[in-house]
Amino acid sequence: MTEALRREDVAHVAKLARLSLSEEELELYTEQLGQILEHANDMSTLDLEGVVPTAHPFGLINVVRDDIVRLSLSRDVVLAMAPDAEDGRFAVPRIMGEAP
């Protein structure tokens, strides 16, 4: 059985998902997500030991493509989409930490 969802869980998840929530939203989402998870508890009582999880509806395997170069997009088109660009690159505000 899984324990009830807490406010701090929702706050943590929001941070992982890069969303910021007001106090009221935090309250509301904790309640709503809690209800959904409670509904999902009908699954947690099932004994599914040994059942193979299905991540794909069909058992296709080895779908590959030939290693042949295709046309890339034009850089002008690519950078025209960018909220900010400089010197042929996408520009972003400062990055605080190294990549994990």
Binding site: V69, S72, R75, R89
Partner: peptide
């Protein structure tokens, strides 16, 4: 199918 090529002009193999 973008080229895997080191040293190309930025954002040209995308």
């Amino acid at each position: 199918g973008c080229a895997n090529h080191f040293g190309a002009e930025p954002n040209t193999n995308v």
